[in-house]
Simulated assay, not measured.
Amino acid sequence: MARLPIQETQKDLTQYIPPKGEYESFRDEDHYKEKLKEWGLSSAREAKKEFWYKDRNAQRIVTIKGYEAYGNNGEFNTLVIEFQDGKVSCIHPAYLKEMQSGSFGKESLLTIEEKEITENTESAPVKKETAQKEESPKPKAKEAKPKKEKAPKLELPADKVHFTATVKQFAMTYNPFNEENDEVVVLENVLIVQDNPLELGLAWCSHSKTLKKFELAPGDSLEFDGKVTAKKLGKGKDVEEEFLVDEPVLYKVNNPSKIVKK
Rank of each mutant, 00 (worst) to 15 (best):
98 E>R: 05
79 L>E: 02
120 N>L: 12
76 F>V: 11
112 I>H: 04
77 N>I: 14
115 K>P: 06
80 V>F: 12
110 L>A: 06
80 V>R: 09
84 Q>M: 04
122 E>M: 14
110 L>V: 01
102 G>N: 15
99 M>G: 06
101 S>G: 11
124 A>N: 14
115 K>M: 09
121 T>A: 15
95 Y>I: 05
107 E>V: 10
90 C>F: 05
89 S>E: 15
91 I>F: 05
103 S>W: 12
83 F>D: 05
100 Q>F: 08
81 I>K: 05
113 E>N: 06
114 E>Y: 04
79 L>G: 06
110 L>G: 03
115 K>F: 00
80 V>M: 14
77 N>E: 09
107 E>T: 10
97 K>T: 10
82 E>Y: 09
95 Y>T: 01
113 E>W: 02
91 I>T: 07
119 E>P: 07
85 D>I: 01
118 T>P: 04
124 A>S: 14
87 K>I: 12
102 G>T: 13
118 T>Q: 09
115 K>S: 12
123 S>Q: 11
77 N>H: 08
94 A>V: 10
84 Q>N: 08
97 K>D: 10
79 L>Q: 03
109 L>T: 02
97 K>Q: 12
89 S>P: 13
121 T>E: 13
80 V>Y: 08
125 P>T: 00
93 P>T: 06
98 E>Y: 08
90 C>W: 10
106 K>N: 09
90 C>A: 12
75 E>A: 15
111 T>K: 01
98 E>P: 03
108 S>N: 05
118 T>N: 07
114 E>V: 02
91 I>Y: 05
79 L>S: 07
75 E>P: 14
94 A>W: 08
96 L>F: 07
87 K>S: 11
102 G>D: 13
121 T>Y: 13
113 E>F: 03
106 K>M: 09
114 E>P: 00
114 E>C: 02
116 E>G: 00
107 E>Q: 15
105 G>T: 15
115 K>G: 06
94 A>D: 11
114 E>R: 02
82 E>I: 09
107 E>F: 11
107 E>K: 12
113 E>M: 04
88 V>S: 15
118 T>V: 10
104 F>W: 13
85 D>T: 04
117 I>H: 00
84 Q>A: 04
96 L>D: 00
123 S>T: 09
95 Y>K: 01
88 V>H: 11
124 A>K: 15
